[in-house]
Design a protein around this nucleic acid. Structure first.
Lengths: 247, 247
DNA sequence: GGCACCGTTCGGCGTGGCCCGAACCGTGCC
DNA sequence: GGCACGGTTCGGGCCACGCCGAACGGTGCC
């Protein structure tokens, strides 16, 4: 029963993300996986004690949930809503002053711009392309708000993605998510997550470095076939190697 | 082309809302109107110089836009996306420690909990009720994501709300917006805004103090008729007076 | 022209929070 | 048991930020 025009509550909550280290934690956790406190500390370049303090605050604030296992403290984003919130904020935040710095970083940036996970669904140029193709193919419809069509249900069944279980979740089935790099929407919601997961299961995509996603040759052809697209459209840019291979 | 796992951009942006005074400004501006710098300063209880500084930052950060008129500086939320962002954050923020304080404040809180504007659409118990009734009546459909139905288009036409112009905007036609007080979704998007505006035009609702909205007697009956609901369901709680009358 | 008022700029003050290092605790492995 | 390691707690230093009052400029009204 807040209703308060009092900004203290909002300010306190926003302050959780108003620190570069904590914000970096949340961005790292956007890959949807659970990280240990030490991993986050190293990734952010701060002392373990500092990271510990920040994590305690983020958990207390409801942004993160933790899970203790042995001597490890695993944390992850509390729920998909938090992921969306962080994404929305990040999409509006200005780009840092010096984008590329090194060639290695620029290459990693290109890989992320091509395809990456956005919490639990697909983002980047490939994600937007998928979103557009699903609309064009009639799987999704936007005439009265973003929605899955009846035709889409059968198309998904053909892909091995049963829709009914997805409706049971408290999250929306389909949802727009503004893409950082493309500045256009891609598909989120339980369906976005299910499609992303199915692509991994089918071997159409594999995980690259960090949040990066790579489209396999088989995946390129199969996806192009399923979406009635030219396979060349789906291919990554000229770059021959999307970051350090980890397959 | 950010893609950066660097938290500095996100942190800097979040910091705009991480101050109680700035957060209070944004919450006040959630009524969708333009306020002068002095009005905001008084509402927040800070010196004009302090407010001026904060406003400059919020404008520079893209959260607010300003419009100078004579010796006044009018400012409002930059776009509906910002309003959504602020709403989403506020919905997750914990309630302030001391909710009611005075009887007057408690009464104002009750009025806001009953019905208020959420930027440009209807929120509060009435907003959620409207959302539920539109679903029940088949104007909206949630089977494949929130969407307006064909039947809904004619229903809206009968109400004097043509849908086609609403599709032209770059904002979504329909969208979920999590209600602060009810913790359940109400209707946002261009349709939510159009309905809210239409209710004011028809005299079904009037503006109360601040963001509060009052349902007129005629509005209660007409809305109940249109939604096939019991008028008693729509009535405000036992309170006989929803804040200082301003009609 | 004179005055009231809105808003801005600047200097200075106080506070809060971010960071680290050192010490400590518990877990897991040898 | 001993050791390595992950994580936490505590104390202290430092910087940034929010606040105000005073002085100034610009606008609108009498």
């Amino acid at each position: 029963m807040t209703t308060g025009a009092d900004g203290r509550g909002l300010a306190g909550f926003a302050a959780l993300l108003a620190d570069p280290t904590r914000a970096g934690f949340c961005l790292a956790l956007l890959d949807g996986r659970a990280w240990t406190a030490g991993e986050l500390a190293r990734a952010a370049g701060v002392a373990p004690s500092t990271a510990s303090d920040h994590l305690t605050r983020l958990v207390a604030g409801g942004l993160l949930v933790e899970q203790r296992q042995g001597r490890h403290r695993y944390v992850r984003l509390a729920d998909p809503g938090v992921a969306q919130l962080v994404e929305d904020l990040a999409a509006r935040a200005p780009a840092p002053a010096v984008p590329p710095r090194t060639l290695r970083a620029a290459s990693a940036g290109a890989a992320l711009a091509y395809a990456r996970t956005c919490y639990d669904h697909l983002a980047g140029r490939l994600g937007v392309l998928l979103h557009d193709a699903l609309l064009a193919r009639g799987v999704l419809d936007r005439s009265g708000g973003l929605a899955l069509t009846g035709e889409g249900v059968s198309w998904l069944a053909g892909l091995g993605v049963p829709v009914e279980p997805l409706r049971a979740a408290r999250r929306p089935l389909v949802r727009d998510c503004l893409d950082w790099t493309e500045r256009r929407p891609h598909l989120a919601g339980t369906l976005g997550a299910a499609l992303c997961g199915r692509f991994f299961d089918l071997g159409w995509t594999t995980r690259g470095a960090g949040r990066a996603v790579r489209l396999t040759a088989a995946g390129r052809d199969a996806l192009a076939e399923a979406l009635a697209l030219d396979p060349a459209l789906l291919a990554p840019p000229a770059s021959r190697d999307t970051g350090p291979a980890r397959a």
